[in-house]
Design a binder for these strands. Structure first.
Lengths: 153, 153
DNA sequence: AGTAATAGTTAAACAGTTTAATTATTAAAC
DNA sequence: GTTTAATAATTAAACTGTTTAACTATTACT
């Protein structure tokens, strides 16, 4: 691959990833409505998937500081969507789970997002999506491995 | 495509897009350093590409309200990276351009991001990237057309 | 001339973020 | 065993980015 070809691919990727991220976020926000923010929904999704977790775990997964998690969990807790339970063995630990209300709201919201994504996916051939997702998955892996990428001077 | 197949593809896409976005943002942030935020860099990139623009144009492109643009432009202006010039014909309009300093900082930062993305892209076959970007581009188009998607009840 | 619309800003309020300090608890060292 | 480390979570202050609503200045319409 020549330098020019690489530069062109890099440029294309950078502007596409920016544009797709912005537009995707906005569309998701429309589906979620006013009860939750996107980040709050993502948080509910994670807890829903793992069933139980801690702030430390969320901070690692979302790659933010624990105090950022405390803030977001506080807001979900104030809305009655999340339960905090202290570990009786190790009383430093607080387990996070969804309340009944949290589960309901998540299910509703997730359903709308599913319908949105389904309507997007239906615009493609199955084969094309699968290829796309395969590369996307690989990209996700490469991003994980590049976590400590440094430009050599 | 069966319902289950669709559901699986949708699930895969949702979690991947979330994960890739988060990790990508974090990697970019590492390259940008402490002089700029990601959004500030994106703003500089847009102005750099079009050379001259207005707040209204930025608000449309970024899909945010104009007051959000005022805030971000103020911060870039305070750092001496952006120039504001009133239109002499229509004195309501303010043209935004990069200052010398803005151009320099953008070039430096963009260069580091380019090297990052290049290192990512090099992990793939050229053919695979091109296919991926083609679908990504189509997705971007579909997202634009879906701007007013509503779930039918 | 008088009313609409447009471009941009300001102010208040909120979500999400970081850094630094703090509390409570457990683990390790000696 | 007591003291020192480390860990889990929270709090407080500060900042960025966002929206809504009100406002200023200017231009366009009728």
């Amino acid at each position: 691959m020549s330098q020019d070809q690489i530069k062109e691919l890099v440029d294309r990727y950078i502007s596409l990833s920016f544009s797709v991220a912005k537009k995707g976020e906005n569309l998701v926000k429309c589906q979620i409505g006013d009860d939750l923010t996107n980040d709050q929904h993502y948080t509910l999704r994670y807890i829903h998937n793992v069933n139980v977790c801690t702030s430390t775990e969320l901070a690692e997964v979302f790659e933010v500081k624990k105090s950022a998690i405390t803030a977001i969990i506080n807001r979900l807790w104030e809305k009655g969507l999340i339960q905090r339970t202290r570990d009786e063995k190790d009383r430093r630990v607080v387990y996070l789970t969804l309340t009944e209300k949290g589960n309901m709201l998540f299910a509703e919201t997730e359903n709308r997002i599913h319908k949105l994504v389904e309507s997007l996916i239906n615009r493609f051939e199955q084969k094309e999506i699968e290829q796309f997702l395969d590369t996307y998955e690989k990209l996700n892996q490469v991003l994980t491995e590049s976590k400590d990428f440094k430009v050599e001077e």
